[in-house]
Amino acid sequence: MPSATPKSLWLAYAGLVLTPLFWAGNAVLAKGVVDQIPPMSMSFWRWIIALAILLPFGLPGVLRQKAVIRQHWLSILALATFSVGAFNSLLYLAAVTTSAINIALINATIPIMVALLAWLLLGDRTRPLQALGIGLAIVGIATVVARGDLSVLTGLQAQPGDLIMVLAVSSWGLFSVLLRRQAVPLPPLTFLTVQIATGALVILPFYLVDVMFISGGFELTRTTAIPMMYFAIFPGILAYAFWNHGVHRIGPSKAAIFMYLTPVFASLLAGIFLGERLGPSHLVGGALILVGLVLATRSRKVN
């Protein structure tokens, strides 16, 4: 890890605080506008706008790396499908039937899902403390999904959006595991540009089916254009850039701690803008998830 000046460290920490704020805003705004912008339209146009912004900067690298891209196109397709293609599409779909707070709480368990899938698929050694953390976080997710009522789980009455968010987190976990196994040797900006372009192509047929046969799309107005710009710029481009810079400057273990701020910010924003309130199941489930994340993160740092 390169040496960092006080100014660059300050910028890294500021970016790592803004990143979960942008992610929380993504969940809250998606919940707020899902009645006006269908989930597939949200997902597709978010990435098209982000790609249009990135292309002038990323295209030269893409053209220089054409041979590498052709050689690794299957890996790129798999990585783009689980990240750009599936993750946010599922998150926006979840917003139809669950709360922004639930989305953020379940989304915060991404490090746990990555650790669990790395153990299952890659055979990573799991220490007892990490296994305990994974178990507590899973119980926390179940508490949030069940809304404190065990019969919700035993009777298969969970909100569809909560279960869809579990699928979204699993999708990002698969992306993270595949990224380790099938790393593509491209510069970060070039890889991000190709990843977004490929993911948008993956979303395209689902978007077209949705527009033609299900939702009919949405009308472009000021009230729909502003959210789409937010989705593209803040949780899209800036969050990726800030997160990568923070990891580069202070390391992945310290940076991962900032992910815990996402449900905190989401709770505040959802309370202010959507009138959502924390219930006992959110507090109990959130506490279990937080403890599980801390235990799992600490156990990884001593490996």
Rank of each mutant, 00 (worst) to 15 (best):
M1S: 14
M1Q: 06
T5A: 15
L11Q: 09
Y13H: 14
Y13W: 13
A14W: 12
L16E: 00
L16S: 11
V17F: 09
V17R: 01
L21S: 06
F22R: 01
F22C: 05
F22M: 12
A24Y: 11
G25P: 06
N26T: 05
L29M: 12
G32C: 06
V33N: 02
V34W: 04
D35Y: 05
Q36I: 00
I37V: 15
P38H: 05
P39G: 08
F44V: 06
I48K: 01
A52H: 03
P56A: 10
L59S: 02
V62Y: 04
A67F: 09
I69A: 06
I69Y: 09
L79Y: 08
F82I: 09
F82T: 11
F82Q: 07
A86Y: 03
L90F: 12
L91I: 13
L91D: 01
Y92M: 04
A94Y: 00
S99L: 03
N102S: 12
A104Q: 02
A104V: 07
L105E: 08
I106Y: 04
A108D: 04
I112K: 02
A115Q: 09
L117F: 13
A118C: 11
L122H: 13
D124G: 07
D124Q: 15
P128A: 09
L129N: 05
G140V: 07
I141F: 02
V144A: 03
V144W: 07
D149E: 13
D149G: 08
L150V: 11
S151C: 11
V152C: 11
V152I: 13
L153T: 10
L153N: 14
T154H: 10
Q157P: 00
Q157G: 15
A158I: 10
A158H: 02
Q159E: 13
Q159S: 15
Q159M: 11
P160M: 14
G161K: 03
G161N: 06
D162K: 12
D162W: 07
M165K: 07
V169W: 00
V169I: 07
S170R: 10
S170H: 09
S170I: 06
S171I: 08
W172T: 03
L174K: 03
F175N: 06
S176R: 07
P188L: 13
P188W: 05
L189G: 08
L192M: 13
I196L: 10
T198R: 01
T198H: 07
G199P: 02
Y207G: 03
L208A: 13
V211A: 11
F213R: 09
G216A: 05
G217L: 10
G217I: 05
F218M: 08
E219W: 01
T221F: 06
T221N: 13
T223M: 11
I226K: 02
M229N: 06
Y230D: 07
I233L: 15
F234V: 03
F234W: 14
F242S: 09
W243T: 10
R249T: 09
R249G: 02
I250M: 14
P252T: 14
A255E: 04
I257H: 13
F258C: 04
F258N: 04
M259K: 01
P263R: 10
G271F: 05
F273I: 01
L274E: 06
G275T: 02
E276D: 14
E276Q: 14
R277Y: 08
L278S: 03
G279T: 08
P280T: 05
P280F: 01
H282P: 03
G292C: 05
R300I: 02
N303Y: 09
